[in-house]
Design a protein around this nucleic acid. Structure first.
Lengths: 233, 233
DNA sequence: CCAGAATGTGAGCTAGGACTCACGTTCGCA
DNA sequence: TGCGAACGTGAGTCCTAGCTCACATTCTGG
């Protein structure tokens, strides 16, 4: 039962103490969201988990939705930063290597807190309904677009925006679905191979074959079924 | 605020009148879900929209969740039937044509009631949390697997289950995302081309090029940006 | 050390929604 | 035509969770 739209502007933290309270609330919110899901994550519960009173919570966040938005904001900003750094680093690499590194980066990021990624991802539509469109998605799109633009001549898709739409959404979703349905995939090197194959097969001009560098002399031959992903192999 | 787990078993409709009531409730539920979303779709609202009393609703459905589950059940069963029929019809077709027909079928189905598809799709995680795993997904996976199995020798992926996972989730999600973010894509023939390219590029052995039949002599050259999808072209 | 600002507290208000139940109405059937 | 079962009704119960507000505590600058 959300009360009416939050009119009163909320306090901004000025002292360190206040900032700490804010952080504690955000962290607790993330924890409770992961543990109980959105429905069961009551603001009272979050406050008590954070070790502050419910009043304090509402001094810094206008509503439950506002709080969850802030959690998403913080979390996605961090993820994006990692991704962006990787993109920059790979700007001049050949496409197959770049793709592989990016997908690996994605999977590694998800592995840090899979459930949180999942929960927040599922919350996107609900938040969008109550707010404006998620600005991080916009940013992610622009980043990938900027990455692909210089190579467009060597790619099959003619409509770059559509290509970005397809690539970003499919890979992102596959990672999230893997979290919930097939957690083993997240650390399965074959899954990474397949994601790369998906992207390259899509981007590659028809008839051209960029055979991915003959893979792996990963010491003392492990069973291919259990090859594991490590960040930056 | 869901009350405690629904213990009492619900009435089953025996007379036609009762069946009609049931249908009215399911239909109204779908309508209200589309119009207001899950949160705002109160059972009282659904009942009044259906033109029946709240008591009647709880005679046939054990809870709000139960009702929504039933809506999903009905809706997805219908979609799956169409898809399955198409799969059977295409069993012996060459892969590229089959893929194209299947993706077209998917898009056409979504176009019948895009918002309902979207809302129900977003509800899957919530329902899964409260119930058992969605059996339709299982069924869809088996169908696609059975479709691909006979052709596995000519395909690149070695792990068929993983391939199905990747194909189904990515295409399904792209359709749903298109509904919410880019409704124009749903009727954009280029989008269909790209989805097919995604799947074929993924399935195709590296180095092999099945150039899709030179497309379209669709009378009086329309702008490629506005080519529209019609069921079965 | 004190005034005033910033911060923190938590009992309680309130809306609103899931769900029940005691009672009417209609149907099938002999 | 009457009776029991199926069906339908909706006012009302119960409860939860979002949020406020009057007050206490801590900090900071002068």
């Amino acid at each position: 039962m959300p009360r009416r739209p939050p009119v009163s502007r909320r306090r901004k933290p000025h002292q360190d103490r206040a900032q700490a309270t804010c952080d504690a609330i955000l962290t607790a919110a993330a924890r409770v969201l992961v543990k109980n899901g959105y429905e069961a994550a009551s603001t009272n519960r979050i406050a008590s988990e954070a070790g502050v009173s419910i009043g304090s919570l509402y001094q810094y966040f206008p509503s439950k939705e506002g709080l969850v938005m802030a959690v998403m904001e913080r979390h996605r900003t961090r993820s994006l930063e990692g991704f962006e750094a990787e993109l920059v680093r790979l700007a001049s690499q050949p496409l197959p290597q770049a793709i592989r590194a990016l997908v690996r980066q994605l999977l590694t990021t998800k592995l840090e807190n899979p459930r949180l990624h999942q929960v927040l991802h599922e919350l996107v539509p609900r938040m969008r309904q109550l707010g404006q469109v998620d600005p991080h998605e916009q940013r992610l799109f622009r980043l990938v677009r900027a990455f692909l633009a210089p190579r467009v001549a060597a790619l099959r898709p003619r409509d770059l925006d559509m290509a970005v739409f397809i690539l970003v959404h499919s890979v992102e979703t596959l990672c999230i679905k893997a979290v919930s349905d097939r957690p083993d995939y997240l650390t399965n090197e074959t899954f990474l191979d397949e994601l790369c194959a998906l992207m390259q097969g899509y981007l590659q001009p028809v008839g051209e074959s960029v055979r991915p560098a003959p893979k792996r002399a990963t010491g003392r031959g492990r069973s291919p079924a259990s090859r594991e992903i490590s960040p930056r192999s």
